[in-house]
Design a protein around this nucleic acid. Sequence first.
DNA 1: TTACTTGCAAATGGTTTGCAAAGGG
DNA 2: CCCTTTGCAAACCATTTGCAAGTAA
Lengths: 137, 137
Amino acid sequence: MKTTQAKLKTTKKREDILRILQEAGKPLSAEEIYEKRTVEMNISTVYRALHLLVDHGVLEKTVYQDGKAYFGIPRQKHSHHLICTRCHAQVDIDICPLKGLEQDLQKATGFTITGHSLEFSGICPACAGGEKTEEKE
Amino acid sequence: MKTTQAKLKTTKKREDILRILQEAGKPLSAEEIYEKRTVEMNISTVYRALHLLVDHGVLEKTVYQDGKAYFGIPRQKHSHHLICTRCHAQVDIDICPLKGLEQDLQKATGFTITGHSLEFSGICPACAGGEKTEEKE
DNA sequence: TTACTTGCAAATGGTTTGCAAAGGG
DNA sequence: CCCTTTGCAAACCATTTGCAAGTAA
């Protein structure tokens, strides 16, 4: 449980991870990054690199409703998602109505707000209309 | 992966779980519920009951940034949290600015929005001021 | 040279499951 | 009675860690 200190060394593996996230343009899970890897590396190396990068402010970590952690490059197209709880279809939401609220919260609580996570869930039109799910009632 | 169907039976254990959540007045993790239990029951029973109740719309499940799932009684004091990333102090936020946005989203995407998860993170005054954390730079 | 990095395998922690016994309607 | 519920122990999955060997600076 340490905080930013050790100097990060530039390695092929870390560059690969950063490149992957850069190209993805959206947060990815450790597993997804691992699958896209170009350089040979162990999954535990991916996890260690990601956490180190988060500690150094290079990356941002967010836990989605699927229970997994996703890592992304900060302020890179800040957006949220609306996910269908049946088929998992995902829609990106570009507007974020929380900037103002964060300001108010800082004043009200004295906290220095560093971020937020927001995710909407629902049923997509396809699943709601035609019964396109595995099973029904 | 089934959806609401089997008839739920009323058992001492399920009543205990519901009572605990009722009294807590806020979402709790399976582990927390298990610790507060009054009736003898296995942790797996807690998990099974919780999921069944979620499937029947009696409870709502939300994964927090700590990676754990929390279960709560719907619309019961709908609120969000602001959590200090250093000491984990938690502040409840009662206002929820998303109702309107959900309406818009439904229209724009055609999804039937069933819920959302929102969590703010930051550094609390105590941690920001005095270095009250385990270690520093 | 000297930390910082990595691979490997084993350990965690939260959650799920198979199966047979117990219990609610 | 029949079907749901429960306990137990084992299985799972995402993530973490100890340790010895490898490597950037």
